[in-house]
């Protein structure tokens, strides 16, 4: 029997993941680079909010969204909802602190921690689907996270270049992470090739030969262009922030393609193994017994 493809999560879920991944990772990167521009910190949650809006539009009964925090004990989606809501609340607090001009570092630190949670919840959410071996795969989780961070870093680099064109730290970070993503992508594919699961075999076929191969190509080119543009910027070759804008656009396309590919190439393991089918047919003595 052939593995069956999942149809539940599609382009909207990928978009939600893209927005929340970008928002959270731009916060993380900027925080780690000890950035001081408060507006950049404010921007991350806007993405998350947009992501939530996309998610709501995907729901069959959005009016029940408030219930989604109930089953946090076992469901990563419930946990994700909680992280997102807390994230927004802390963001509101940050805005308040900004307006009142209060000391806000603890809020930033909390938001940083929440950013990490928001970053990892989609990874864990997919990881928790036992039956879709592509999602369950550890490499998929690593790739999802690295891709998200590369997008965030690219965005950070671009925005900062508008304010401080001479500071190259973030461009270097973006360069490094895009290179990492590129290298990992090859490792990822070859790691998947070694998997024994039939569903992963199908996933790979979808990614490499099927109607998902453009997505793979796009996620590949995304990080390549990001890398190239960061390099141009660092080497100070032609137009300045413009290169980073192009890099960011490609990066987004790459991250989105990767997410979409991961969702669309998700196959369930066959309901019944070929071995079991043989066992049944042999014992039923149906067909011809040659």
């Amino acid at each position: 029997m052939e593995p069956f493809r999942q149809h539940e999560f599609g382009w909207r879920v990928a978009l939600d993941f893209l927005l929340s991944g970008t928002g959270s990772s731009m916060f993380i990167i900027y925080f780690l680079s000890a950035g001081s521009n408060r507006l950049v910190y404010m921007l991350g949650p806007v993405f998350i909010l947009a992501g939530l809006a996309v998610l709501l539009s995907e729901l069959g009964k959005p009016s029940n969204f408030w219930r989604s925090i109930y089953n946090y004990k076992t469901s990563w989606m419930a946990r994700g909802a909680i992280f997102n809501i807390l994230y927004i609340l802390v963001w509101l607090a940050m805005i308040l602190a900004y307006i009142l001009n209060l000391y806000a570092f603890p809020l930033y630190a909390i938001e940083f921690a929440l950013s990490i949670l928001v970053l990892i919840y989609p990874v864990m959410l997919l990881q928790d689907v036992k039956d879709i071996k592509l999602w369950k795969n550890g490499w998929s989780s690593v790739m999802t996270a690295v891709y998200a961070i590369s997008g965030g870093a690219s965005l950070d680099a671009f925005i900062i270049s508008l304010y401080q064109p001479d500071v190259l730290t973030l461009a270097y970070i973006s360069l490094g992470i895009s290179l990492l993503a590129l290298v990992l992508l090859f490792a990822y594919i070859s790691a998947l090739r070694r998997e024994q699961y039939k569903s992963i075999e199908y996933s790979l076929r979808q990614m490499l030969e099927g109607d998902r191969q453009n997505l793979l190509k796009l996620s590949f080119s995304g990080v390549v262009v990001q890398f190239a543009m960061d390099l141009l910027f660092i080497l100070n070759i032609p137009a300045k922030p413009f290169a980073l804008l192009v890099g960011f656009a490609f990066s987004m396309a790459g991250v989105y393609s990767f997410r979409l590919m991961l969702l669309n190439a998700g196959f369930h393991e066959p309901l019944i193994s070929d071995k079991r089918i043989k066992e049944i047919t042999a014992s039923l003595k149906i067909g011809h017994k040659n």
Binding site: E8, F9, L59, G60, K61, F65, S68, D128, K130, D131
Partner: peptide, 12 residues
């Protein structure tokens, strides 16, 4: 139920 489809994706 809020119709998130997560269960449908997770059902083996």
């Amino acid at each position: 139920c809020m119709g998130c489809r997560y269960c449908a994706a997770a059902c083996p």
